[in-house]
């Protein structure tokens, strides 16, 4: 079904380009026209700021953390640590205003009413508990001479470069 759908889409791709450009233009026009609500200079700052923050800060920082992990964490465990870091960073980012205590208003305690710092610790604790179990399993297999399962990592030595760690994707 996917293959058929994609073939069908490929046949219609110039139509898709036309529709896409029309939708894009419609959006830009609306954003500029309804300037009292959209405040175009502000909106543009956030739009461009998001790209710059991601491309120039978040990705290089992620790469640097990845480089560090590749130096510090040994082979059969590195993939587990990277996976757990990715999950932790994504969960923390998606709930960032909550555990940072941003937002809400004093007259409405029903907005952001939970102890989010504690809750984030619970969720991340569970993530790293699972990671610890996976690491223990791998350590045991390594000691007993079994090959590490190839689900999360390959086996041969290949120096990981800065960007091979997929983790603290801290963008916004």
């Amino acid at each position: 079904m996917l293959v058929v759908g994609l073939r069908w889409l490929a046949g219609l791709r110039w139509l898709a380009v036309g529709m896409g450009l029309a939708a894009l233009g419609y959006g830009v026009d609306g954003l500029v026209t309804m300037s009292r609500a959209t405040h175009p200079p502000q909106a543009a700052r956030w739009l461009i700021g998001a790209v710059v923050l991601h491309d120039a800060v978040a990705v290089p920082v992620t790469a640097a953390v990845g480089l560090l992990v590749s130096r510090v964490v040994r082979a059969p465990y590195r993939a587990v640590v990277q996976g757990a870091m990715l999950v932790s960073a994504a969960v923390a980012l998606a709930s960032l205003p909550l555990w940072r205590g941003y937002g809400g208003s004093p007259d409405n305690p029903t907005v952001n009413p939970l102890p989010y710092g504690r809750n984030l610790a619970i969720v991340l604790g569970a993530v790293w508990a699972v990671a610890a179990v996976l690491i223990a399993v791998r350590a045991r297999r390594a000691r007993s001479g079994h090959a590490v399962p190839t689900v999360l990592a390959g086996s041969a030595e290949l120096a990981d470069s800065a960007d091979s760690a997929e983790l603290a994707d801290s963008a916004g």
Partner: peptide, 26 residues
């Protein structure tokens, strides 16, 4: 942010989905 959320989120949705369609085609 100083823009009104719902209106801005709505118009940027059109921009995003339009650019996504072009991207899918490409």
């Amino acid at each position: 942010f100083r823009f009104f959320f719902t209106v801005t989120h709505y118009w940027v949705a059109w921009i995003t989905i339009g650019a996504l369609l072009v991207h899918v085609a490409a």
